[in-house]
Amino acid sequence: MADFIAAAFILGGCFFFLAGTVGLLRFPDTLSRLHALTKADNLGLGLVAAGVAVHGGDLVIALKLLVVWVAALAASATVALLIGRAMVERDEP
């Protein structure tokens, strides 16, 4: 049962990664692509981490994975801010 849930989480995560990548390709400008990056891909990572946590079935491991996810979330938000600022500055100096 746990394995089944884990697999579902991981597959769901992969789906969002796929969607994020499609977004990265299809969205017309860099700022829109940031949405794909900060939202779909982060959710994908979160779901995979959750799947691995369920699979491991260990609270400490799960907390560790939470740390990984939060770090990645903070990192991608920072990166989005940096790129965004650079783009805005370039377009309207």
Binding site: F17, G20, L24, R33, L34, L37, L45
Partner: peptide, 25 residues
């Protein structure tokens, strides 16, 4: 910038790969 974006996603996937390989640290 496009290259940087790809690189960031690659980084995320690398985290994933490590998780899959059973190395959360």
């Amino acid at each position: 910038i496009g290259a940087a974006l790809c690189f960031i996603v690659l980084g995320l996937l690398t985290i994933l790969a490590w998780l899959r390989l059973g190395a959360p640290d």
